[in-house]
Design a protein around this nucleic acid. Sequence first.
DNA 1: GCTTGACATCTGGTATACCACTGCTATTTT
DNA 2: AAAATAGCAGTGGTATACCAGATGTCAAGC
Lengths: 249, 249
Amino acid sequence: MAGTMKQDAYRYILQKMMRGELEPGMQISELSIAAELGISRSPVRDALSQMVAEGMVERVPRFGTVIKTFSAQEVADLYDLRVALESYAASQAAAKIDPDALKNLEECCEQMNGLAEQLKKNGSGELDADMLTEMSRLDMNFHMIILRATGNRMLLKSAYESKLMSRIFGMQRVSSFDWEHVHGVYRYHRDIYDAIERGDAEAARASMTRHINFGKEGSLVFLAEHQDLRHKEKFEDIAERILEGGEFL
Amino acid sequence: MAGTMKQDAYRYILQKMMRGELEPGMQISELSIAAELGISRSPVRDALSQMVAEGMVERVPRFGTVIKTFSAQEVADLYDLRVALESYAASQAAAKIDPDALKNLEECCEQMNGLAEQLKKNGSGELDADMLTEMSRLDMNFHMIILRATGNRMLLKSAYESKLMSRIFGMQRVSSFDWEHVHGVYRYHRDIYDAIERGDAEAARASMTRHINFGKEGSLVFLAEHQDLRHKEKFEDIAERILEGGEFL
DNA sequence: GCTTGACATCTGGTATACCACTGCTATTTT
DNA sequence: AAAATAGCAGTGGTATACCAGATGTCAAGC
């Protein structure tokens, strides 16, 4: 237990999501979470409110708090947003990443390679659960290092949230990752790293754009194949309010 | 009164900010707001929590909720984020804005021109309060129309929040706007509009980048001149947490 | 005049209670 | 048996109360 109870609850719920115990579309009970942590509803509610603001979760009046489900449009939007933010970050990183971070970035890269090699040797086509979380962690770290290198905290915050969302969405399809996929991700990361390492901002931007767009395509294909599972109701949120309302204020 | 009390409180506080009654650095009393609206602390607190998540205000434990003050670094970061988001939006808009929105965009543009002309005729170098809010509203609308044209709600949400923040910051310097400035903004807007109207994505992107960077410079100059007023303490927020923590999870 | 210390009063954080509303289930009515 | 209905459990929304820590005030003592 560290810091406020709200932060505890936030972490707790997030980890449940990451471990796949809470999947998109599922309902989160404020009371249950509170009971599991031995605290009251208030901090749990605060944590969920933050998640609502971050777009990971939606509140449906008189039904419950629900993990966001993504339509094809939303997935595409999400990845486009990441392109806008992270390609910019990559170009900035190429110009001003510091040596330590660069070293971490390479390590992160090579660990992914190690994972791929290990998977190839094992021969089994699929990752087990541990390797899955490791892969997920390495990918997250790689992108975060680049975002951190910009030194722009606001960019970092926006990108972090969108990356988190695409990761939550990814949890439901990640089980199908094989050696080819892991190796492919490594190749992309390596390209990006090389461009940053030699200070080529334009190449870094282009590589990052390709990388994210590749992920976007994969997600959209997955979504098309599992369309039947999705139930997509419309909920109101900030974007809704702004999009519909013609005038400001 | 429309919708939930939380929304009421959110609007109420936002309007206070926009009207300059609440300036950066000032403390917001949950209890006072609640009393003014005749409601309890809870919805006010919810509204403020949302603002915290959006980065407009900060909570300082055992002191109060405070409207965010901006260091030069943060202002620069803010505008850079807007460049990343809005230049992308402008290029998208050039490709797929619909005729109605385009018409609105032009109207918005020309109203700004009208404002400039009116100001020129009046002879007085300064805007009065009404013209100031009108100018602010037109500027906001112009940018929102372009963002809306992308059809990307997540981009819209991120950009909306950052635009809102730069606007709040702008409230403290906006009083010095003269004819030249208004006309300058019009010229930039017109350039962007022209590029979008003829479907030139690259030009739209470039114009938007120039426009926002111009605003950035102005803000930084203002900040340098009024540095003495700023008191910049460090508070912890999401970005902080991510920036410092080396590993994820 | 200056320090000191008790006290009232702020704040955010948390817990708890209550309400209106919904959806489901079991009962009653037809 | 089928339909209508009454009741219960669950939800989000709101109000209220209490707490610990920080701050500001002001009078007593040096």
